[in-house]
Amino acid sequence: MEQDHSASKKMRVDDAADAVMTEVPAPATATATATASSMNQQLFWSQWQLLDSILPTGGFAHSYGLEAAMQSRVVNNPEDLRLFLVQAMENVGSLLLPFVYCASKSPDAATWVKLDQLLEATLTNEVGRKASTSQGSALLRVATSVFTEIQLLQDLRKTFFGSTSVSFHHAPIFGLICGLVGFDSETTQRAYMFVTMRDVISAATRLNLIGPLAASVLQHQVAPDAERMVQKWRDRDVSEASQTAPLLDALQGCHAYMFSRLFCS
């Protein structure tokens, strides 16, 4: 049953326009059709902008534990890197996709606050926790400046800026923004996986583990793994969120112990 379901989903999202359309109610008139289709066209531009590494959210400052894994000789070469990447993505799938999903499904302030507070208690690794809040607050800052037409983002920033009750974790902010911009939840979750993959690979090139061309080859090679993980972990409730990479978790916690380091996490 699960198989059939995911197969049909996969077919559908091969065409991004279709995936986006499913979220838009069927228009009644020709004018409405035209408006909806121009909205969908606009969505592509928002989607690509949100996923572009040029978006100044500070993702380049984080290695997801890769630097610590290198300094402890757990990752030494491109083969190790591939294994690391697959595990990092699986961990993002099992631990963070539920937060992305729940935030994108109900993009409102009350849900977001609850998810943010729960994630604060869930990210028990200080290095990962700080990386999450710094990227989340940067993303919210960028999104409020870019998507000025979305009132809720402005309100959130006004209400919670400087507040100690929320931490602005990345996954719920990402889900919330994608939800408000109009992505469907599957695209949102796949996009989150993509951003993780992109940042780990980008960190690997700067750590000199792999060259830029080989990095692009690797990115293409692991895409089917990434898709499998999206299908496996998507649409889950936050009560199911689990971490699946204890070795990487212990290693990432060591990040602050390194005498010399390139990355913040």
């Binding site: 729960l118 208690a121 869930t122 689990s242 699946t244």
Partner: peptide, 10 residues
Amino acid sequence: PLFIDSVLLE
């Protein structure tokens, strides 16, 4: 919630 931890290995 103060500490919410779940480790899964399968």
